[in-house]
Simulated assay, not measured.
Amino acid sequence: MTGSTVNSKVALSWSGGKDSCMTLDRLVRAGYEVVCLLTTVPQEIGRTFGHGEKLELIRAQAEALSLPLEFIACTFETYTDDYISALQGFKDQYGLEAIAFGDLFLEEHKEWGTGVAEAVGVEALYPLWMKPDGTRDALKTFVDSGFKAVVIRVSDRALSEEWLGREVDQAFYDDIVRERQVCPMGEGGEYHTFVYDGPLFKHPVSFEKGEILQLETTKRLELALYP
């Protein structure tokens, strides 16, 4: 990370998955002040844009992390304009100097994030940015970090239903790196995760696993907060 100084006020684009969590951990370790989490919610689905997760589960993560959470209401058609408008408001509200994203190596994602940040006059940070061949080591870092995550979504073209509900642990690592056509970190959308505990959490997010839904090109494991 370069540019913003330590103690800069940073918003973090938050999907609820391992990449977001790793980004948060790296920001905190580097001395940045993460002042809020930002999660987009397209009105077409009424769930998070990134993973299609229920809003109450994202709220539970934010509460366990003791961080303010801001949902960005948007539509697929006006997504970028909605994001820029909301980010401008949060810049004024929180005194933002930067926004951080958990992207790893997809240039088009970095270009989009950098563009919206420039439109608002803040810096775009990519703490996890790496070469594609670094994703195996990155996954091992997460597995060894103490954070806990479960697989909640898989792409039909990449992984079977049996991967849903698996813990992202050493056994998961050993198996996923054998899948030669799959990025170990799932950067191509091969799988998505939900982080529910770890070093930055004040307490675990308790949940129960529900039904598996077949969507257009993916399968999703429904989670529900434990009563």
Score class of each variant (00 low, 15 high):
residue 65 L to W: 05
residue 65 L to M: 10
residue 67 L to W: 13
residue 68 P to F: 03
residue 68 P to M: 03
residue 69 L to N: 06
residue 70 E to N: 00
residue 70 E to D: 07
residue 70 E to Y: 01
residue 72 I to W: 02
residue 72 I to P: 00
residue 72 I to Q: 02
residue 73 A to V: 06
residue 73 A to H: 11
residue 75 T to H: 04
residue 75 T to W: 03
residue 76 F to W: 14
residue 77 E to C: 06
residue 79 Y to L: 07
residue 79 Y to A: 01
residue 81 D to S: 10
residue 81 D to W: 07
residue 82 D to C: 14
residue 82 D to K: 04
residue 82 D to V: 04
residue 82 D to F: 05
residue 85 S to F: 05
residue 85 S to H: 09
residue 85 S to Q: 08
residue 87 L to E: 00
residue 87 L to T: 04
residue 88 Q to S: 12
residue 89 G to W: 03
residue 90 F to N: 02
residue 90 F to P: 00
residue 90 F to Q: 06
residue 91 K to N: 07
residue 91 K to V: 09
residue 91 K to G: 06
residue 92 D to H: 12
residue 92 D to R: 15
residue 92 D to S: 13
residue 92 D to K: 13
residue 93 Q to I: 07
residue 93 Q to R: 15
residue 94 Y to F: 09
residue 95 G to V: 11
residue 95 G to N: 12
residue 96 L to P: 07
residue 96 L to V: 09
residue 97 E to Q: 15
residue 98 A to T: 07
residue 99 I to Q: 04
residue 99 I to R: 00
residue 99 I to M: 12
residue 100 A to P: 10
residue 101 F to K: 06
residue 101 F to W: 14
residue 102 G to E: 11
residue 103 D to F: 12
residue 104 L to G: 10
residue 106 L to I: 15
residue 106 L to Y: 15
residue 108 E to Y: 15
residue 111 E to L: 09
residue 113 G to M: 03
residue 114 T to A: 13
residue 114 T to C: 05
residue 117 A to S: 14
residue 117 A to E: 00
residue 118 E to M: 12
residue 120 V to H: 05
residue 121 G to A: 09
residue 122 V to W: 01
residue 124 A to F: 05
residue 124 A to R: 03
residue 126 Y to H: 15
residue 128 L to G: 11
residue 129 W to I: 07
residue 130 M to K: 14
residue 130 M to I: 12
residue 131 K to L: 11
residue 132 P to L: 08
residue 133 D to L: 06
residue 133 D to M: 08
residue 134 G to Y: 02
residue 135 T to C: 13
residue 137 D to H: 13
residue 139 L to E: 04
residue 142 F to D: 06
residue 142 F to P: 03
residue 142 F to C: 08
residue 143 V to A: 00
residue 145 S to R: 07
residue 147 F to R: 01
residue 150 V to G: 00
residue 150 V to I: 15
residue 151 V to F: 08
residue 151 V to C: 13
residue 153 R to M: 13
residue 155 S to D: 15
residue 165 G to L: 03
residue 165 G to T: 05
residue 171 A to H: 10
residue 173 Y to D: 04
residue 176 I to A: 03
residue 177 V to G: 05
residue 179 E to K: 14
residue 179 E to P: 06
residue 180 R to H: 09
residue 180 R to S: 12
residue 181 Q to T: 10
residue 181 Q to D: 10
residue 184 P to M: 07
residue 184 P to R: 03
residue 184 P to Q: 10
residue 184 P to A: 10
residue 188 G to N: 14
residue 188 G to D: 10
